[in-house]
Nucleic acid binder design. Sequence first.
DNA 1: CTTGGAAAGTCAACAAGGCTGACATAAAAT
DNA 2: ATTTTATGTCAGCCTTGTTGACTTTCCAAG
Lengths: 166, 166
Amino acid sequence: MAETSTQGGETLLFLTDEQLRKGIEAMFFAYRGFTADPDRILDQHGYGRAHHRAIHFINRQPGLTVTTLLAVLGVTKQSLNRVLRTLIEDGLVENRVGRRDKRERHLYLTPTGEALERELSGAQRERMRSAYRAAGPQAVAGFRQVLEAMIDPDMRRHYQMMKDGS
Amino acid sequence: MAETSTQGGETLLFLTDEQLRKGIEAMFFAYRGFTADPDRILDQHGYGRAHHRAIHFINRQPGLTVTTLLAVLGVTKQSLNRVLRTLIEDGLVENRVGRRDKRERHLYLTPTGEALERELSGAQRERMRSAYRAAGPQAVAGFRQVLEAMIDPDMRRHYQMMKDGS
DNA sequence: CTTGGAAAGTCAACAAGGCTGACATAAAAT
DNA sequence: ATTTTATGTCAGCCTTGTTGACTTTCCAAG
């Protein structure tokens, strides 16, 4: 793939534009695969990818506030609210007033919401698991390292927050 | 990351749901980073991500037909046409009637189109390059392996086609 | 205690980019 | 001569993003 050489103990990478381009295309096609299974499931339930994202992060960090979710998702509150409203109306998400700060609303999945979350993440994990298996353990480590290095600095704190569990 | 053990010469992966979940989130945040730079540039030119995808693949395989591009992008012709029309009107893409089969239209970037393509892919390659550098040469190989394993089987032929240059 | 600002929510309007369905034309294939 | 393929177009719909304006509730600092 990328030829390497050592110079003064440091490993150098020779990356041609062509190699980088292949990485870009792999990213494009892989992301499509990554979202394909959830998209099918969501469609059956009458939801879209935006609902999935909300459900995912509420499940990941139960009780997070609307503002936090807004920052993680990187959308406007009007956009999020449209999605969140339907999820609350449909009884998938619950909205509890904050104990300390009563302005805040803390978001939780209901049992119904958790069921959908399991269905969605189950499919996604299955694809991820089989990709990991096909690529092997060494590849898995590299995969995460490169992805993490691609995350925007502004977003990295949100990623870390989720990663470490609040 | 993922603990490994050897059993009969085969390496096994122990992947917890938690580890898979982290991979899923890394994918989510990384894709955002991946599209961030081009999105900014496109916005300045009054285009969107859909234009970028068309430009990318026309550049990758000059002279490809509309039907091929349709299959690669996985959208409807109505959707692609909206995008393609503006690119042709703005003089970024050229539409030549097929020599052998006169029903076909072969797509090419004009010099203006190529200039925008370079601007877009330059930014994207730069991010990819710095992620590669941060992660190291071993990681790079693994990254591509996992991504390729995640691609949908139906899409893999398109990926290969682009990868090998037609 | 008042007042300023933060958290949440809502309405309206708009745009990009998906989708379906219907239809038209030119050219190739049968 | 007829059917099929490749392309393009019109119309209309949906989701999900955006701005801007405005309200209510509540915390916190003066």
